[in-house]
């Protein structure tokens, strides 16, 4: 198949997009597909397409787990006009996952496991039918992808190699300490600032992952890769408060190539 044919096929069969008004100045976009993983990947790609194309009238974009909320200037465009522009952009660019981009970084994030830092680890182990050690082993051998930046720039990551889904807390905590490493489903997230969360806390990183005195405030961005490394509690003091930066090797070479 030639490149030309592939391109034409893509034009004729763009992924179907549902575009629903969310008030007078926002449009909710969802990729229609039966496969949740496909929807997630496609929404993430859709975000990149919109950030690149910047359709007229778009003010900002909020990434959901499998959706995108597009906020726009209602005096510049209507819901219908914007939906049409977005469908055209998608038809032209496609939503197939791109290859590893050159700017993709790898972050190796140290994490301390202790009774205090990992209150939900025994519960998660029980839910998955594994021992705590096995949970940590599977967690730290997973290469996670940052799907989106959630509240206060929290990196929401997919791809945890657990044998099943981890449920959320029945009663969400009103305050979770910064640095807490949390899981739900097969996703992981790090709490950048104190605040409430219903995710299960299994460890804590001594690093500062978001600091508004840095520019940008985080080194990571959607699409970057993360691996967690369980370190002894004795390492805490040495690493505490250091600003998280990409591992040097990944920044030089980029992409999946340098993963073990």
């Amino acid at each position: 198949m030639t490149t030309h044919t592939a391109y034409a096929e893509r034009l004729h069969h763009p992924p179907e997009l549902a575009a629903e008004p969310f008030g007078d100045s926002a449009l909710m976009l969802r990729v229609k597909n039966d496969d949740a993983d496909f929807r997630r990947t496609a929404s993430s790609r859709l975000r990149d397409v919109l950030l690149e194309v910047r359709p007229y009238g778009v003010l900002d974009i909020v990434a959901g787990v499998e959706s995108l909320l597009v906020e726009f200037d209602c005096l510049a465009v209507t819901h219908e006009q914007l939906a049409q522009t977005i469908r055209l952009a998608v038809a032209g660019k496609g939503l197939e996952p791109g290859g590893a981009s050159a700017s993709q970084s790898l972050f190796v994030i140290p994490m301390v496991v202790s009774e205090e830092f990992s209150p939900d680890l025994p519960g998660v182990a029980e839910e998955l039918g594994l021992g705590s050690e096995a949970v940590l082993q599977q967690f730290s051998s997973s290469v996670l992808t940052i799907n989106l930046l959630a509240a206060a720039m929290a990196p929401m990551m997919g791809g945890v190699q657990f044998p099943g889904q981890v449920s959320r807390c029945v009663e969400p905590r009103t305050n979770v300490e910064p640095g807490s490493v949390m899981v739900a489903g097969t996703n992981a997230i790090i709490q950048p600032f104190p605040g409430p969360s219903g995710w299960k806390v299994i460890g804590r990183t001594p690093l500062t992952i978001c600091d508004i005195r840095e520019d940008p405030a985080t080194s990571y961005k959607p699409g970057d890769l993360v691996r967690f490394e369980v370190v002894p509690e004795g390492e805490w003091a040495r690493l505490e408060g250091q600003f998280l930066r990409a591992s040097a090797a990944s920044r030089q070479e980029g992409g999946h190539g340098d993963l073990p």
Binding site: F22, G64, A151
Partner: peptide
Amino acid sequence: IVSHGVPIGAFEIPHGDELIILGRSRTLT
């Protein structure tokens, strides 16, 4: 409902008997 972006001014009804109207510093999803 899978976590999704919410616009400013959204009227949410959480599980309790309360009506919340989101402001500009809302949690985004």
